[in-house]
């Protein structure tokens, strides 16, 4: 029981922890502790709203219907995908701009307004699964073992988020944007897939839960068609049936399925609509991302040949301008660490 509820807590918390970990690393690298405070506001507000709504719906006169719960989760997922995608490209551009800013010896500054955008991303990432999770936690109020397991799972997710922050904050700027950007795009594709899954469950989007005649079913058994060859003709299950069903092979409640769902968004049972959205997103966004990274690198090379004094990691130079007020002392070791990294 403890392990099972631990995994549930881990799954619900991991994705948000990873995204927030990267956000914190990003603003930390830019020495913007004022934005850091906004991120924590976003996270705190999200937890507070989810926890109080969860309590109201659990103990109050009215509960939340299954459809609304799924629609809220699904809609917030789609919003989170849009904002995370925007953030990845914005971070790349910001990284690119760093060069010009550094040459002008200006302190790197986030554009006005983007600080709150980052806070909103933190808010959405946490809130997406927040209401569902707090409803579950309040429901377990009288079951200490399950409750404890789930809470420890969430703490483990936070610890992993912190590890991601520690791991990425030391990378130099170029590497940081490339790695975290690629990772966030993969995470966002997963969020898109099960945002669609939530909306399909609520029958807002057509799919395996829509009923006839939308859902493709086997005329004899009435079961939803799965895969490419199931049914009277090839691709009969497309687009509103299941793409694959691996639940017989992979236990969706196990450790690996939990980690896979919380990172790349893979679940053992996925609909064609989910898979199509996932693949389309990656096919459109990844090439754009790769092109943006290449442009950045080319610009960096060009700047280096034009000005040999810039032949150092941007991160190192970033710490040269006078620190912004309230910049934490943790910046100090970064200065020492970065040159070692670039030398290798």
């Amino acid at each position: 029981m403890f392990l099972a509820s631990f995994l549930i807590g881990l799954r619900e918390g991991l994705e948000a922890a990873l995204i927030v970990g990267i956000l914190v690393a990003f603003v930390h690298k830019r020495g913007r502790s004022d934005v850091l405070a906004k991120i924590w506001w976003g996270v705190g507000l999200s937890i507070a709203i989810a926890a109080s709504l969860g309590a109201v719906f659990t103990f109050g006169a009215y509960g939340l219907s299954f459809e609304s719960q799924e629609i809220i989760g699904g809609a917030m997922s789609l919003l989170a995908v849009a904002m995370v995608t925007w953030m990845v490209f914005w971070m790349l551009k910001a990284g690119h701009r760093m060069k010009a800013e550094l040459e002008a010896n200006a302190a790197g500054a986030l554009a006005v307004g983007t600080g709150w955008a980052i806070a909103w991303i933190a808010f959405l990432s946490v809130g997406r699964e927040g209401l569902e999770t707090t409803l579950m936690l309040w429901g377990w109020a009288l079951q200490p073992e399950a409750l404890l397991g789930a809470l420890v799972g969430i703490l483990a997710a936070v610890a992993i988020g912190y590890a991601v922050f520690r791991g990425t904050v030391r990378l130099n700027f170029g590497t940081f944007f490339t790695y975290t950007g690629a990772f966030l795009i993969i995470v966002a594709a997963g969020i898109l897939a099960y945002g669609i899954h939530d909306l399909q469950e609520a029958a807002v989007l057509p799919g395996p839960f829509s009923g006839l005649p939308i859902t493709p079913t086997d005329p004899r058994t009435g079961e939803v068609l799965v895969g490419l060859t199931d049914g009277p003709f090839w691709m009969a299950a497309f687009p509103f049936g299941w793409a694959f069903d691996l639940t017989a092979v992979i236990d969706p409640t196990g450790v690996w399925a939990t980690l896979a769902k919380a990172t790349v968004g893979f679940t053992p049972l996925m609909s064609w609509l989910e898979v199509t959205a996932w693949a389309s997103y990656l096919l459109i966004i990844l090439p754009k991302f790769v092109a943006a990274v290449r442009r950045n690198r080319a610009a960096e090379r060009a700047a280096r040949t034009a000005n040999p004094t810039l032949d150092r990691a941007p991160a190192e130079l970033a710490s040269v301008p006078e620190p912004t007020p309230g910049a934490s002392p943790e910046h100090a070791p970064e200065k020492v660490l970065v040159p070692e990294r670039t030398a290798s």
């Binding site: 509820s5 549930i8 219907s65 299954f66 579950m136 399950a146 397991g149 395996p208």
Partner: peptide, 22 residues
């Protein structure tokens, strides 16, 4: 039709009790 979901309760851990009101 055994397809449309009227209501569901997910993530019921082994040994746990969960309530679904409809």
């Amino acid at each position: 039709d055994r397809l449309r979901i009227v209501a569901e309760k997910e993530d019921i851990a082994p040994g746990a009790l969960a309530e679904l009101t409809v």
